[in-house]
């Protein structure tokens, strides 16, 4: 069953076509990798999906209903939950409160939200720092916290923008395990990553973008072996 459907989405910044007529479907329960060289438009696509940028053309369907142009908060309520490439947490609030914000905003009761926050904190091994303000966490811990925020209420689809970038291997382990176990329980993901081994390991299917357009959308191994993908990466900056 198709959960997310992206149809002909285009976004221009001045003369630059950051996202060029991109179309693909994600079925419920899928874990799809989104790869591509720097500047190929992955983050811009996620911005459009999560309501932070308006597409110039195209249509996005979530559960069969059009959702382009909705505000980020509306989309969050509809289950489109996004993690940022540049980590965003509430720096002057402590770890628990960071989680509670998402829980309460998405409609959990106070007690329920607190229970969830506690269990996520232990799952993400943030116990030791649970009482610190988020601004005092290390970069990796902040990423873990942002993970937690995205899963306070399990989203319909989680859009993760380079969660593994500049993260210690142990934390990568924690995140990888987290993604895997959720995926096994039917969680849908769109995962942007430059870390090919991880993509190969986690994602059965991958989409490769270059210069704003989809180059190939196929099983991950086939994508990585594809001449056009190799060309895109070797060609350096998107042509």
């Amino acid at each position: 069953m198709t959960l997310l459907s992206v149809r002909g989405v285009t976004k221009r910044y001045g003369g630059l076509v950051a996202v060029n007529n991109v179309s693909f479907d994600v079925a419920a329960g899928e874990l799809v990798g989104l790869i591509g060289p720097n500047g190929s438009g992955k983050t811009t696509l996620l911005n459009i999906l999560s309501g932070l940028a308006d597409p110039d053309a195209g249509e996005i369907l979530l559960d069969g209903k059009p959702c382009q142009g909705l505000t980020p908060e509306k989309l969050a309520h509809r289950g489109m939950m996004r993690m940022f490439q540049l980590t965003r947490v509430f720096r002057r609030m402590n770890v628990i409160d960071n989680l509670l914000v998402a829980g309460r905003a998405l409609g959990l009761k106070p007690g329920e939200a607190l229970d969830r926050a506690r269990s996520l904190i232990s799952e993400l091994r943030l116990d030791a720092v649970a009482a610190l303000d988020a601004g005092q966490l290390s970069g990796g811990q902040m990423k873990l916290l942002e993970f937690g925020v995205c899963f306070m209420v399990p989203p319909r689809i989680a859009l993760l923008d380079e969660p593994f970038a500049a993260v210690h291997p142990t934390m990568k382990e924690i995140m990888g395990g987290f993604i895997r176990s959720r995926h096994e329980n039917g969680q849908t993901f769109l995962l942007v990553s430059h870390d090919m081994p991880v993509v190969v390991e986690l994602c059965p299917r991958a989409i490769c973008m270059n210069a704003g357009a989809v180059v190939i959308d196929a099983p991950t191994r086939a994508v990585l072996a594809d001449a056009r993908v190799i060309e895109a990466y070797l060609g350096g900056q998107a042509a």
Partner: peptide, 24 residues
């Protein structure tokens, strides 16, 4: 109440607050 959480979230990062579903 939750208002306290939301207001401080908006203070710290408006975009992150919206992402979390807060009606900014």
């Amino acid at each position: 109440s939750k208002a306290g959480l939301f207001l401080q979230a908006i203070r710290d990062d408006e975009v992150a607050a919206r992402r979390a579903g807060v009606d900014v």
